[in-house]
Amino acid sequence: MRIYLFCLLISVFPAAAHAVIAQQEMRPGIPANADYLIGEPGKPAVLLLHGFLQTRDFPTVATLTRGLQDAGYTVLAPTLSLNIPNRAQSLACEAVHRHSLDDDVAEIGYWVGWLKSHGHRSIVLVGHSFGSLQLLAYLSLKPDAAVKAYIGTSLIEAQIGTTARAALIAQLEDRVLGKQRALVNQPLSFCRKYPSTPEGLLSYVRWDQARLLAALRQSPVSVKLIMGDQDNVMKRGWLKALALVQVPMVIVNGANHFMDGAHEFDLLEHTLKSLDTIQPVPSR
């Protein structure tokens, strides 16, 4: 896999630190990019993933990236390609979606490998919203041994509106088995209309609350959740369900799904506290 690095001069960072843009070809003709902010060698590297259809420039992620780097952590913040070459903008709900969760998970794996190839042997996965789900999906498939911990913020399942999930899954499975290629238009996450291939939609729809809870219980690495008690995106009872899994969780009072405003500082503080407990492996 070809890897390109383009050095950038960013004046807002300390002189001792610097940033680059990393690029990898995820699939033939589909390059994807990530911000690589280099921190102190004695700390674990953070792979920070954005939410559904967004980019690494989404405010919650961009603010957390800067805060982590200022605290001395190396941060790799990719933008998932969603099968669009060099994607740099959020993807509209109404666009034709030819990506899948399998593609997303594969790209996470590529970026973990990229960090390892650059000497990082202790990696922490940090996600926001749907990015937290995608990272859990990666962890459920024999993650690289360099991954030491997971921090999920505003973790949420693949929401599908009022549709009965079991019936939708059965319908999509029939389409896949019948090799039907016609697009399916179905609510997904915050999208009221989400036209997608049957295979792609099915890969997301299967990740309901039960599957998320199981992935948390079975995580091969340490888990920490950071949630807001004023998050009106999650369904009623979700915080109680998460509490029953008995994984470490911080509930930020007054914080919404995006942890914006004054709660940006709470998100950064709790993330840093979690990172401080992780013993790094010396970089090569």
Rank of each mutant, 00 (worst) to 15 (best):
V233H: 00
N256M: 11
L115N: 02
N185T: 15
L168K: 12
L49I: 14
D229K: 15
S154H: 01
W207H: 10
G113E: 04
G228D: 03
E157L: 11
Y138K: 08
I3S: 05
Q246F: 00
T63V: 07
Q89W: 06
P44A: 09
L125P: 04
P248G: 07
G67K: 12
Q54W: 03
P78G: 12
S283H: 04
S283I: 05
L216W: 07
L272C: 04
A92E: 07
N83F: 10
A62E: 03
H128R: 14
P31H: 03
P28M: 10
T197I: 06
I123F: 02
M26L: 11
L91N: 04
A137N: 09
C191V: 07
V96D: 15
M249H: 00
A17E: 02
L101R: 09
T162P: 04
T163S: 11
S11G: 10
D70W: 02
L135D: 00
V126Q: 08
L133Y: 05
V20P: 01
R284S: 06
L212V: 09
L5V: 10
E157C: 10
L216I: 08
D104I: 10
P282N: 00
L53M: 14
L68R: 04
T55A: 15
L212Q: 08
M234D: 00
G51T: 12
R98L: 10
G152N: 08
N86C: 09
T277G: 01
D231A: 15
L125D: 02
P41L: 15
L239P: 03
Q279M: 14
D35T: 12
N86G: 13
V124K: 12
K224L: 13
S219P: 05
P195M: 14
G200H: 12
S11C: 13
V61S: 08
A17R: 13
R181V: 12
T163Y: 00
I226R: 01
D57R: 14
R27E: 07
D144Q: 15
Y110H: 06
H257S: 04
L216S: 13
L275W: 11
G178L: 14
F58T: 07
V223C: 13
L239A: 02
R206A: 03
A167M: 00
E269A: 15
R87K: 12
A145R: 09
S90L: 12
Q180W: 01
A34W: 04
R87W: 03
L37S: 11
D276N: 09
L242H: 01
G39P: 09
S283A: 15
Y4P: 00
L141A: 11
M249T: 08
A164E: 06
L133F: 14
P85M: 13
G161R: 06
Q24I: 11
P187Y: 08
I226C: 02
A210I: 06
H120L: 08
Y73K: 03
Y204I: 08
C191L: 10
N232I: 09
A16I: 03
T163E: 04
D70H: 15
R211T: 07
T63D: 11
H128Y: 02
A88E: 10
H263M: 09
Y150I: 05
Y204M: 12
S274M: 10
H270V: 03
A182C: 01
I21V: 06
G200E: 06
V126P: 06
I108H: 02
R211F: 03
G72D: 05
L8Q: 11
V184I: 09
D266G: 10
A166G: 04
H257N: 06
Q23P: 04
V105K: 13
D104C: 15
A241R: 06
